[in-house]
């Protein structure tokens, strides 16, 4: 669009060019178009004539759509009114275009936007916060060299090295009552209940429950043969 600042085919000095730019409202080279200015002057390609910037050039600078340019020009011509230059007071089209692209990019590809957000959040976290809370507790304990029982025991409880028996059994597998019986008897604290009192409570039924002041027990299967052991 514009034009090397020359005068009589001679390149103007930078100082003189700047002076003329400010005094006459001209722009040159890669200068940007002053926002909100309705009238601007430019040099033509023959380097001799100074003229006003054409409205269509100004519309181009403000990213007014070609169809809208035609409409504005047509209204001005048909009604014999000056061309409305109100567009210089509005935001240029490229701003809206970029906003629209950003919105659609986020809405049409939410997974990518979510991933980008997670990356940003993770980058803002401290290194020890990225890992699980268990490791965070252990790391803090190691940092402070305080490995007392109060710190270690909760970690040992959460990080169990024993195999998970329940996970190894299928959901629909038959219940092994024998293991259940042995486990119930082994866990029974016989010191809490006297042998005589226990004998009095046992009846010849398949399922019996006991209650003691300290704890409650549920015996899966007890029959007469089991009672003989007491």
């Amino acid at each position: 669009m514009i034009l090397q600042p020359v005068n009589s085919s001679k390149q103007m000095t930078e100082e003189r060019s700047l002076k003329r730019t400010k005094s006459m409202g001209t722009i040159e080279g890669v200068d940007l178009v002053p926002a909100g200015r309705k009238r601007l002057k430019v040099f033509t390609q023959d380097d001799l004539v100074l003229r006003d910037m054409l409205p269509c050039e100004l519309m181009d600078a403000y990213d007014v759509k070609v169809t809208m340019q035609d409409a504005l020009t047509e209204v001005s011509r048909v009604h014999s009114v000056p061309l409305s230059m109100v567009f210089v007071l509005e935001a240029p089209g490229k701003l809206f275009t970029s906003v629209g692209h950003a919105v659609l990019k986020g809405l049409l590809n939410p997974a990518a936007a979510k991933m980008e957000q997670m990356k940003t959040e993770e980058a803002n976290l401290a290194p020890d916060e990225v890992h699980s809370p268990i490791f965070s507790v252990a790391a803090k304990a190691l940092d402070t060299q305080v490995l007392d029982s109060a710190t270690v025991e909760p970690i040992k409880k959460e990080v169990s090295l024993e195999p998970d028996v329940k996970a190894a059994m299928e959901d629909n597998a038959a219940v092994n009552f024998e293991v259940w019986d042995k486990r119930s008897v082994q866990n029974f604290d016989e010191t809490a209940v006297s042998r005589g009192a226990l004998k009095g409570c046992i009846v010849r039924r398949r399922v019996v429950s006991f209650s003691t002041p300290s704890k409650s027990f549920f015996f899966g299967v007890i029959d007469a043969t089991s009672c003989e052991a007491f």
């Binding site: 990213d63 935001a91 490229k94 701003l95």
Partner: peptide
């Protein structure tokens, strides 16, 4: 954003925009 004027405008949004 690739424009030709020296103007600046505020973009305000209730979601993060790039």
């Amino acid at each position: 954003v690739g424009g030709m004027t020296d103007g600046a405008w505020s973009i305000m949004s209730n979601q993060k925009l790039s």
